[in-house]
Design a protein around this nucleic acid. Structure first.
Lengths: 147, 147
DNA sequence: CTCTTTACTTGTCATTTGATAAGTAAAGGG
DNA sequence: CCCTTTACTTATCAAATGACAAGTAAAGAG
């Protein structure tokens, strides 16, 4: 396999993933939060609890701006700050019950859309898809240095 | 394969893809264009020529805003507007030589980063990865109704 | 006990982005 | 020819976002 050809595939693929995931989560963001705030909620839904620094780093935003958005989310009662036991400078952030409820609704709708999208696919093909997802995530789309 | 489990994988996977592709294109955006403008250039690099309406629809932005950003990109000489032969209301947009050069540079760097990322993977595994990309793109991450 | 570093906050400002109202010009239908 | 629709433009405004300067409080090093 030519590495340049693989790169081309990679570009087309990531473009398609962005396209489809945008399509699937379209209109699911409640009007009560901004885009950036919603992205933070999505991140928390998958990676909570997280510190402010975690969020700042993963979302590539400055600490001051992260702090501000987190304050707004906390004011809106979508997440909670919990003082870390070991280090009183740190705060763990997690979704509040209201935030959990919100994101559960979002995920439920996204799941319905995914089911719609794969409705026509036979069982054995779904098996292959699951394996392909695992393979790519392990080999290519992993965080910094898995092993 | 349980469809709910597949959804979970799907969520984790798309999160990872976003994460990695953000990482790989980080700092590649030149300071001369804004984020939105850069996204348009990325889109054009893959899908040119495109009309203003195409861009507006795919990027989920309003026509007035799309028009404004395209004007700025054109003023900065990164793309060109070409009147459509058949319909004088339409305009085809494509990257200018300067825009092409810019995006070639970006892609070259991204490619280098991908190669770094897959350097340790043996040839036969790369084959499987290519197949997995094809499978997922055909079956799951395709545009509206492929066949 | 200082000094430095880390984690986070507060405040401020410019820029970007999104939304909307109103307009032009060509295409298409009847 | 008139009317409607399509494709795009211009202008304006508010909100969101990003960047930076300065500050607090706790942790850690010497």
């Amino acid at each position: 396999m030519d590495k340049h050809a693989l790169f081309q595939k990679f570009v087309a693929f990531t473009a398609a993933v962005h396209q489809v995931s945008n399509e699937m989560t379209k209109d699911l963001k409640p009007d009560t939060v901004t885009s950036v705030q919603y992205k933070i909620l999505e991140y928390l839904a998958v990676s909570q609890p997280a510190t402010l620094s975690d969020i700042s780093e993963c979302m590539h935003m400055s600490m001051p701006n992260t702090s501000r958005e987190l304050r707004k989310l906390t004011e809106k009662q979508f997440c909670e700050k919990i003082a870390a036991a070991d280090d009183r400078r740190k705060q763990f952030i997690r979704l509040s019950p209201k935030g959990e409820a919100l994101m559960n609704g979002v995920f439920a709708q996204a799941e319905a859309r995914l089911e719609e999208r794969i409705r026509h696919i036979p069982e054995e093909e779904l098996e292959s898809i699951g394996q392909a997802l695992d393979l790519l995530q392990d080999q290519v789309f992993h965080g910094p240095k898995p092993g």
